[in-house]
Simulated assay, not measured.
Amino acid sequence: MKKNWKFLAVIAIGFASCKGGFKQGDGGMLYNIVDHKSSTTIKEGDFVSLQGVIKTEGDSLLSSTYEMGRPSALMMPKPQYKGDLPSALQMLGEGDSAIVKTNIDTMLKKTPGQQKPPFKGKYIVYYVKIEKVIPKGTSTEAAFQDKIKAYFKGISDKTKAEEPGKIKKYIDDNKLTVTKTASGLNYVITKPGSGANLAAGDTAVISYIGKFTNGKVFETNIKEEAMKNKATYNPMNPYKPARFAVGVKQVIPGWDEGLLMLNKGAKATLVIPSALAYGEQGGGPIAPFTPLVFDIEVIDIVHPNPNAPKPVMPQMQMPTAQQPQAKK
């Protein structure tokens, strides 16, 4: 989050020092190139990695790569129409930053089927910083892909090296007195429950808040928490307690291990290293080598019914030899 606000502060300072303010582009687009360092610009087909913050004209945050903890990567597409975001990005190069306002009315006219955004205003506002450009140029596809793979490996190695520091900082900043298990899971029971702990095969009924170590909530099944952030709230989500069997690999390893230390009514904070979460591959909004924090409450424990009938394995029909047909 600090990086996000630091970037916005730099953008604001740059904008204030730019006497010309926004310039008029095609299709009602407005743009202000705050920092222009590159002598070359992005071309269609180039690989681009960028940091970006997307806001409404009313300054409500829609999305931020800084909060997600990783830049956004794309192959620069051909602009769909004059005045869209790709057409603005093609005015920039590596190291450049800009504020771009794309016109919503133009977007709706030029992209049939596009739904009107659920917020008021004339523009969608993008704050972008181009981190890396790998030109396609005349490179063979194999050589081009090798350069992209090398870039991602460098990012991955850096993220992996930073992970222990992120975990320690979160624990220190939040003054958590954690217990660390042999696997690397850090946990603290913030409210003891009652009765026996969950056992493998039990069904846990839980409420949870999932966060990155920068404090950004990426998922929760608690409606009140979700509504605090418009970017994560989904009105179609029923927001009810989650139910799943524990200790049988239905969830990430950090949950399986942590929940077995809890009983009904217990609350706990789990600080989970990526090795016990989504690992070096990541998943969805979770980048590779990302440690996660979960605040969990065990609402109920459902034990398996020992008298339930065991599932019957289907009988396999043995193949029979085909009878030879009688000769006519």
Rank of each mutant, 00 (worst) to 15 (best):
residue 2 K to M: 11
residue 4 N to G: 13
residue 5 W to D: 15
residue 17 S to A: 15
residue 17 S to T: 15
residue 26 D to Q: 13
residue 41 T to N: 12
residue 44 E to G: 06
residue 44 E to I: 01
residue 45 G to F: 07
residue 45 G to M: 06
residue 49 S to R: 03
residue 54 I to M: 14
residue 62 L to F: 03
residue 69 G to Q: 07
residue 74 L to A: 14
residue 103 N to W: 05
residue 108 L to N: 00
residue 116 K to V: 09
residue 118 P to V: 12
residue 121 G to V: 04
residue 132 K to A: 13
residue 136 K to Q: 13
residue 139 S to C: 12
residue 140 T to E: 07
residue 141 E to T: 15
residue 146 D to W: 06
residue 152 F to S: 06
residue 154 G to F: 00
residue 159 T to G: 13
residue 162 E to S: 07
residue 164 P to V: 01
residue 172 D to M: 13
residue 174 N to L: 06
residue 175 K to R: 15
residue 176 L to Q: 08
residue 189 I to L: 09
residue 194 S to T: 11
residue 200 A to E: 10
residue 206 I to V: 10
residue 210 G to K: 14
residue 213 T to M: 04
residue 217 V to I: 14
residue 222 I to A: 09
residue 224 E to K: 12
residue 227 M to A: 11
residue 233 Y to V: 02
residue 234 N to L: 04
residue 235 P to D: 00
residue 240 K to V: 09
residue 245 A to H: 14
residue 250 Q to C: 08
residue 254 G to N: 04
residue 258 G to R: 08
residue 259 L to D: 05
residue 259 L to H: 07
residue 266 A to G: 05
residue 266 A to L: 09
residue 284 G to T: 07
residue 287 A to V: 09
residue 305 N to C: 02
residue 314 P to V: 00
residue 319 P to C: 06
residue 326 A to R: 15
